[in-house]
Design a protein around this nucleic acid. Structure first.
Lengths: 145, 145
DNA sequence: AATAAACCCGACCTTTTTAGTCGGGTTTAA
DNA sequence: TTAAACCCGACTAAAAAGGTCGGGTTTATT
C-alpha cells in the first residue's frame, strides 16, 4: 500500500533536524532518537544507510556523529527514499535494473502505462528537496498542474 | 515501500481489459483471471470490491459478470486504488479521517510538509484516468512541470 | 595506553501486512 | 431444477516491516 516505511520517516525527520542545526554541527543518532521518540537502534541504522549513500557524512569515534553531506536544496526526497528503501517502483516490473518474474507479464496490459506513471511519480519526488520540506511555506511551489 | 498491492494491479488489469471489450459486454472474473494468469479467487474478490464502490457493476446469476460502472475517463487511478486499498497516505498521520497514534507526533517536524506532499500526490493519481491508462500514447499529458 | 563514546553491521525475532485459499452461501438464465 | 456465476467471511502461508541484540571498529580524551 503506497506508504513510506518507518525508516524513511525516521530518515527524513533526522535530516530535517540536522538542517536546522548550526552549520557544521555534529549530530548524534542518540539525540535525534530521544528528541523524536525513535528507537535508537532503528535511528542509528537509518543514519548509517544515509551515510553509505553520501546524503550524510559520518564522523566516527568519541564526539562523533553525522553532518549533512550537501546543502538542503541538493538533497531530494526521491534520493532519500531510494537510499533507504532501495529503487522505488509503483509496480515491480517497472523497477529499473531488476528483473521481474511476474506471471502476468507475458500478457500484461498495463506495464507500458505504468512505465510512464512511474517516471512521473519519480519526477514528482525528485522535485521536492529537503530544503522544501524544511520550509512548509515554500512548499506551495510543489504543485501539480 | 511505495508499491501497489497485487490486488490493485489485478484490479487495474481487469478494468483496462473491460474497457477494451465491446460496449456493455459482460465480463466474467474467470476469463480475466485465466487471460492474465491471476488466481481466480483473488481476481473475484477484487472485482467484488470494485463493485461495492460502484466502479464496476455486477450482474449476478448464470451469464453474470461485470460491466464498467462509468466511462473510462470518469474513473481515476486514485479512486481505483482507494477502493481496493483503503484511504491512501504516504505516512499514517496524513490519512484523512483516521487517527494517528504515532509516538513522534508530539514533536514531529515533518507532518506539515507531508500534508502538502500527500495532497499533491493524490492530485497526481486523481489526474490519471482509466482511459489514460488504456491509451499509453495519450499518457504524454501526464507530465510534471 | 586505557577508556569511553560513538559509529558500524550482520543476525535475529516479532508483528503486521499481503497474498492466496476454502467452504459455504445467494442469485438468475436456461 | 440445475448450473453458472457472483458474494463473503474465515483461514493459512508467505513476505515485509519494525525492532532488538551482540559484538565489532574508530577516535577524542585522560
Amino acid at each position: 500500500m503506497l506508504r513510506l516505511s518507518k525508516k524513511s520517516e525516521y530518515g527524513i525527520i533526522a535530516l530535517k533536524h540536522m538542517l536546522n542545526q548550526p552549520e557544521g554541527a555534529i549530530i548524534r543518532a542518540k539525540d535525534v532518537a530521544s528528541l523524536y521518540n525513535i528507537p535508537l537502534e532503528a535511528m542509528a541504522k537509518t543514519l548509517q544507510t544515509l551515510a553509505r549513500s553520501g546524503i550524510v557524512k559520518s564522523c566516527q569515534g568519541a564526539k562523533g556523529g553525522y553532518v549533512l553531506g550537501r546543502a538542503g536544496d541538493q538533497i531530494s526526497l526521491s534520493e532519500i527514499i531510494e537510499s533507504i528503501e532501495g529503487p522505488l517502483g509503483i509496480v515491480d516490473c517497472v523497477v529499473g535494473a531488476s528483473e521481474c518474474d511476474c506471471v502476468q507479464l507475458e500478457n500484461c496490459n498495463i506495464s507500458d502505462s505504468f512505465q510512464v506513471i512511474q517516471k512521473q511519480f519519480k519526477l514528482f519526488l525528485a522535485g521536492i528537496s529537503l530544503a522544501d520540506i524544511n520550509n512548509e511555506m515554500e512548499m506551495q511551489h510543489v504543485v501539480w498542474h
